[in-house]
């Protein structure tokens, strides 16, 4: 049950990584609102389907506009919103199944356009809401209800995939470190172009990876997560490739290219050169 809707009956499981993502997004929106002095209503949160999609209903504090759309189609929706109203801050929340499986076809076009939106991908390596099927980020050989004998497909490396597509802002975060994550999301919002903040957000029911990511000295588990080194230059694409191909999970800003104009900027530029005919003139152009 959310604070605002008594009828709302969805819950994340206890310990779900999505709580941390929600908190981080709330902080990021709050910080942005304070800094820009723009009203909270100038933010739109668009989501698809899955545990991640419910985030729009669970945001606490001042309410931004929300759109809980179809499975996999949050990017096209956000594209329509942003192109129509470039002054709005558009944030997408999506899951790994939602974004990288059914919705994967929508990522390359937005990368080519450099659409100025921020995607927060909540990756738990599994389909949670449908109860535990394999997702693109489930490791090869992984056993799930839909891969009872082990997953045959290789696992996708999302960060490398985004780099290859030319996404102009790529960050990697962890739901267990929400303060840091809020900063990454805020940086994504500030970036004038297509920003993806890919977050490890473990599923405590079907794929509990907290120990793996954080490590556990008592169990002798080395942490998978490591911080992007201070000296890393996010503008250096080759260096970014090295980070995402290294063992483990880099946390921080992986890549940032500010030289590429956003779609809205390109459209503005082009609009200055185009003269348009009035409706009357257009109708008259068909005179016999």
């Amino acid at each position: 049950m959310s604070a605002k809707g008594r009828e709302y009956d969805f819950k994340w499981c206890p310990g779900c990584g999505d709580f941390g993502v929600r908190r981080a997004l709330e902080w990021a929106l709050e910080a942005r609102t304070m800094r820009t002095e723009l009203p909270i209503e100038s933010n739109v949160v668009v989501s698809g389907i899955g545990c991640s999609g419910n985030l729009v209903h669970l945001l606490e504090g001042p309410q931004p506009y929300g759109f809980h759309g179809l499975h996999g189609r949050s990017l096209p929706l956000a594209f329509g919103v942003k192109m129509s109203r470039p002054e709005l801050n558009v944030v997408i929340t999506a899951g790994d199944g939602d974004f990288l499986s059914i919705g994967v076809e929508h990522i390359p076009p937005q990368a080519l356009r450099n659409l100025d939106v921020t995607v927060v991908v909540m990756d738990n390596g599994v389909y949670g809401l449908t109860k535990g099927q394999s997702s693109p980020t489930t490791p090869q050989g992984g056993v799930t209800v839909s891969t009872p004998y082990g997953k045959l497909e290789a696992a996708l490396n999302p960060l490398e995939f985004y780099l290859t597509l030319g996404v102009t802002f790529i960050a990697s975060g962890f739901s267990g470190r929400p303060k840091e994550l809020a900063k990454l999301i805020e940086a994504g919002m500030d970036h004038q172009g297509f920003a993806i903040v890919h977050v490890q957000s473990p599923c405590t029911t079907y794929n509990d990876t907290y120990d793996v990511i954080k490590g556990d000295s008592k169990k002798g588990i080395q942490p998978k997560a490591w911080n992007v080194p201070q000296e890393h230059d996010p503008a250096d694409r080759d260096a970014a490739y090295k980070l995402v191909r290294a063992e483990g999970l880099p946390i921080g800003i992986i890549y940032r290219n500010t030289a590429v104009p956003s779609l809205a900027q390109r459209q503005d530029q082009q609009g200055k050169k185009v003269s348009h005919r009035s409706l009357e003139q257009l109708v008259d152009s068909y005179r016999v």
Binding site: V44, L70, R73, P76, L77, A78, F79, G80, E105
Partner: peptide, 17 residues
């Protein structure tokens, strides 16, 4: 658009905006 699926979702986004 890159597909009809993108087109319909995008115009709904525009209508919503």
């Amino acid at each position: 658009a890159s597909s009809e699926i993108e087109a319909i979702n995008a115009i709904i986004g525009a209508g919503y905006a």
